[in-house]
Amino acid sequence: MTATNPSLDLAGGADAPPARPRPGRSSARAGETRRKWFEIIGLTTPAVLVYVTFVLVPMGFAFYYSLFRWRGVGKPTDYVGFDNYVLAFQDPIFLDALRNNAIIVFGSLVIQGPIALAVALLLNRNFRGRTVFRLLAFVPYVLAEVTVGIMWKLLLADAGTVNAMLESLGLGFLVQAWLADLDLVIWTLLFILTWKYVGFAIILLLAGLSNVPEELTEAAQIDGASWWQIQRHVTLPLLAPTIRIWMFLSMIGSLQIFDMIWVTSVPAVRSLGASATMATYMVDNGFFARLWGYGNAVAVILFVISFVAALLFQRFLLRRDLQGAITGRAK
């Protein structure tokens, strides 16, 4: 266990105790306070250290590097100010990537939300074999992005299964170059992402549904409400916080989407912008083309967009939920 480590006793008892010791018994109290801080610091320091080092510090460095033209060798010296940012917003490929991210963010919310809600309400009903159906509905979400990407890449190839099945069903006119058509590819990707991630929404909503007290639905039932009425007037309002949390997580995930796009899309199509996202654009340019300064500028843009979106979401939609739901002890 993360035992108290003496070498981590940075503050010791020197810090002002937050709970004021009662006068009279101060020495025993001081010892207790001292030990309390000892434990607090010992238990939290490892987490704080790892978190700061690998989450916060890199973002700081990203901003620093983004101000240079730098190929990643030696120390960055060619200071260019905000030129990299200007360049990014002048690159039509990056603008395409931004548009694609927007499509994925809104497409995911609009398509996955209703589907997940319907499936969650369905799988929340009591019927024999429910557990098995739940498991099956979660399968796409559990699979690795890479395996799902390769699977769909094979299925949707020009001479792949989907096109072959369309032919054999007499629907040959529907045959498409699903992943190579520049106008179509982003919608194909949106379909694959929906298939993959709707299970996540279902898991969250089912967890939320299990918190809806049975007494409430039973009471409504006794009052003669129909199943639909109960869902509409009892369950849904109680589920609203969970829905908002899902929307939030889905939005952040969509903004930084990488794996599936990277694996599924053809590099040539991606380099034309048709299937690029901010994250694939960043890795293509920063890591593989070794434009480290530029890539880091894109990273900062991606971060700022996510952060602002998250703050706006919190400000307008999530505020109440975070107070009630995530902060643990109710006041």
Partner: peptide, 17 residues
């Protein structure tokens, strides 16, 4: 706050570090 930090965004500086 870490929930708001996209892991993807930090990947390049993370690699350098």
């Amino acid at each position: 706050l870490g929930l708001l930090f996209p892991a993807g965004a930090a990947i390049l500086p993370l690699y350098l570090m």
